[in-house]
Every structure is written in structure tokens, then in C-alpha cells.
Nucleic acid binder design. Structure first.
Length: 398
DNA sequence: TGACGTCAAGATCCG
DNA sequence: CGGATCTTGACGTCA
């Protein structure tokens, strides 16, 4: 909160955030995830004058260490100021804050010591009942941006105001690359006759050598929620249909999805040129108890599916996973999975922990508490007893 | 004035 | 106290 934004707090939060992002990058490297969006909140109040901390100097070596990891692993990062960064506003103060905010994003990426292929993604902003004038204002305010911002800037179509035609016009005019977002284009399209691939090819023309590979945003609609809401997970069949029809695959596809890393790994495994069933076995080790909890039938099905070690039935595997996770919780499955996980501790837990577990377990059976309580207790035990296998498990996420 | 997006952290209430 | 549930926030546009 802004009232807590004193130098000591800011210092502590930044140190903590850098530590977290460092761990996240290690995770990405381990999982072969090559695209990563860095949160704009990495530096709290990064573009607000209330933050007077000279964070660039104070954390110089931490930034450079992280930057080195990004570069040596071949990772590509990006940042995405949200809907509140509006460069084409009528209000001069809003425009000034938007410029300050973009400068902050560029400074942050510069601090990592990484090249101009690591992008800052921006939407155009408001319409104010006159799109032509609003675009004109965007273009003229663009001139006030620092070179450090311009070299990283990419422009994206949004879900209600500026469609992909608008973006191609603006991007071409300013000689800035355009990011195509498939879901935004679906709900705010300029020409329904043209498909995604047409627009992707058009956007390709706006990417220059120094921008790195073309990048697009890919997401799917959450069918239960309002138009434009991102799905919990990437439905693999739908993704593969999109991917298989992509003519040029030399591009980066940034997934926008609630379960982030899970879908990233899913799509990576599904599109690998060189594959090995060991990758699916590794995934299975993480999903196992979540699936056991949701659906015993799918649990058996997956075990059978992975029996042939020369096979790589990746799509069938994720179909099973998606199918199982969509099912409603039932108490029998939850009890079964919880007991399996408890199996890791039954011989090492203290008497007190045993009592605690079975008290909670009985309370759950009598519907007095939710399964979440059991799971968070088991999670604490996994940490205490350093059960690596469980610490990697997705069981605790669902 | 609230919805929009985002979601962890904080506040509050309950037993 | 643990746990469940509700509220909040740095930001701007639009209906």
C-alpha cells in the first residue's frame, strides 16, 4: 500500500521480489520454458515519485546475475503494462504518468543487461468517442518516448477498442512491431473474413531484425465466464489445431492462461520435435495425486497409456489430464488421494501430527471442514520433511 | 458509481 | 488459534 511505501519497506520488498524472480527463472530453465513475462510490480511503485529508492544501483549485481541467467539459458522475457498505462489520454497528467511508467519498464529491462528483443507490450488506450483523433494523439505522444522505450516497444490489439487493423496501421506508421492476440481478435475483430494466420502474417512484416523473433499472444476463452476471460488451462486439442495450421513456426507464442507454467509445459511437450516418454513420466509424477483425487478411471487409463516406453502419446495423455481435472470433486477420491499422500508421513510424523491429521481427516469425512484444510496440512508436512516428490506435485494446486 | 483485470495480502468474523 | 470469507489496492476508461 502507498502509505507503507517507505524506503525500508521498499528495499525489503524489492530484495524479496528479486529472490522470487531468480527462483522462477531457475524453474523455467529446469522446465525448458523459454518465454516469461516479468510482473510490472517487481519494483513496487516503480514509476511513482513516492519510490525514491535508488533501486537500480542498490541491486545492480542482483539484476546482472539474473540477466546473465536469462541470456545464457536463451530465455526471452517481456513486460506488459496494464490497461492503466494510457499514452493517448486527454489528460496531460495521465500521459506523463504513462511515459514515466514506460520509462520504468525500460529501465528495469536495461538493468538486467538484456537486448532489445526482450519486449514491452502496450495497448493503445482510450477512444474518447473519436478514434481517429485518439490514434493521432497516440502517434504524437509516441514521439516523447525515450529511445530505450521505443527499441523495446511492441503494440497489441485489445478486446474492445483497437482491433488488429488499427494496430497494423499504427505499427506501420510508427515502425513498431505489432503483437497479434488471438482472443482479442476473436471478440474485437475488424474483418471476420480473415483468419488468425492472415493477421499473424501481416504482423510478421512489422518485426525487424533487432526485435528478435515475431511474438504472438495465444489464449482461450473461459466458457463459463465473460467474453475475453482467459481459460484456466490451455485445452490441448484446440491449441494443437491452431499450432498445426501455423505455416511459419519460427515465432514465440506467449500463453495467457490462469495455470501459467502448467499449460506452458503442456504445450512445450506437445510440440517438441525430439521427444521421450520420460517427459510424460515426469509430468505424470506431478499430476498423479491430483488425478487420483479427481478420477480413478483416468488414473488407471493414464497408467496404461504410459506402459509402452517407445511411445509418446502426449496428446492422449493431456486429454486424460484435462478430462479428469474437469470432473467434480467427490469425497471418495479426495479421501483416497489424501491417504496416499499421508503415506509419505505415516512412519515419520510425530504423535501430535498423526493425531492432528486424523482429527482433520474425520472432520472432513463428517463434512465439517473442506479438503483444502487437509491439503494445506499435508503441504506443511511435505515442507517440514522435505519430501521432494510431493513438493513438486500439482496435487496441492487443485 | 461500478465494472473491467489481477490476485495475494490484509481484515474480519466464526467457532 | 486456525480456518473461512470478504475486501482491498497503484492505475484510467467507459457505460
Amino acid at each position: 500500500m502507498i502509505k507503507n511505501a517507505n524506503e525500508e519497506n521498499l528495499y525489503d520488498i524489492i530484495a524479496h521480489n528479486l529472490c522470487v524472480i531468480d527462483n522462477t527463472i531457475d524453474y523455467n530453465i529446469k522446465n525448458n520454458i523459454k518465454l516469461f513475462r516479468i510482473s510490472s510490480d517487481l519494483i513496487p511503485f516503480g514509476s511513482n515519485p513516492i519510490n525514491t529508492l535508488p533501486w537500480i544501483e542498490l541491486f545492480k549485481s542482483e539484476f546482472l546475475d539474473i540477466g546473465k541467467k536469462i541470456l545464457t539459458s536463451g530465455m526471452r522475457v517481456s513486460m506488459h503494462p496494464g490497461q492503466y498505462t494510457v499514452l493517448n489520454s486527454f489528460d496531460e497528467g495521465v500521459v506523463k504518468r504513462a511515459i514515466d511508467d514506460l520509462n520504468y519498464h525500460a529501465l528495469l529491462l536495461d538493468s538486467f543487461g538484456i537486448g532489445s528483443d526482450h519486449k514491452i507490450v502496450l495497448h493503445i488506450g482510450g477512444v474518447y468517442n473519436d478514434k481517429k483523433a485518439a490514434v493521432k494523439r497516440f502517434i504524437s505522444n509516441y514521439q516523447y518516448l525515450e529511445q530505450s522505450v521505443k527499441k523495446r516497444l511492441v503494440l497489441e490489439n485489445d478486446d474492445k477498442s483497437y482491433n488488429i487493423c488499427d494496430l497494423l496501421e499504427i505499427g506501420t506508421n510508427l515502425n513498431q512491431p505489432v503483437i497479434f492476440d488471438n482472443l482479442h481478435n476473436k471478440i474485437n475483430s475488424c474483418d471476420k473474413e480473415k483468419n488468425d494466420y492472415y493477421w499473424i502474417n501481416e504482423c510478421r512484416k512489422t518485426w525487424r531484425e533487432k526485435d528478435g523473433q515475431q511474438k504472438i499472444h495465444y489464449s482461450q476463452q473461459d466458457c463459463e465466464k465473460s467474453r475475453g476471460a482467459h481459460s484456466n488451462t490451455i485445452r490441448i486439442n484446440e491449441f494443437m489445431e491452431f499450432y498445426n495450421n501455423l505455416e511459419m513456426k519460427d515465432m514465440d507464442i506467449m500463453l495467457e492462461v490462469k495455470d501459467k507454467n502448467l499449460s506452458a509445459i503442456k504445450c512445450i511437450n506437445s510440440t517438441l520435435k525430439k521427444n521421450d516418454i520420460k517427459l510424460l513420466e515426469l509430468e505424470w509424477s506431478k499430476y498423479k495425486y491430483a488425478i487420483l483425487e479427481k478420477s480413478h478411471i483416468d488414473y488407471i487409463g493414464i497408467r496404461k497409456l504410459l506402459q509402452n516406453k517407445n511411445d509418446y502419446p502426449v496428446i492422449q495423455f493431456y486429454n486424460f489430464i484435462e478430462n479428469a481435472l474437469e470432473k467434480q470433486n467427490d469425497m471418495g477420491g479426495s479421501i483416497n488421494a489424501a491417504l496416499h499422500v499421508w503415506g509419505y508421513f505415516k512412519d515419520i510424523a510425530t504423535i501430535k501430527e498423526k493425531d492432528n491429521f486424523f482429527n482433520k481427516f474425520d472432520a472432513y469425512k463428517q463434512e465439517k471442514i473442506s479438503i483444502k484444510i487437509i491439503k494445506s496440512f499435508l503441504w506443511k508436512l511435505a515442507i517440514k520433511y522435505e519430501q521432494i516428490y510431493l513438493l513438486e506435485s500439482y496435487y496441492f494446486l487443485f
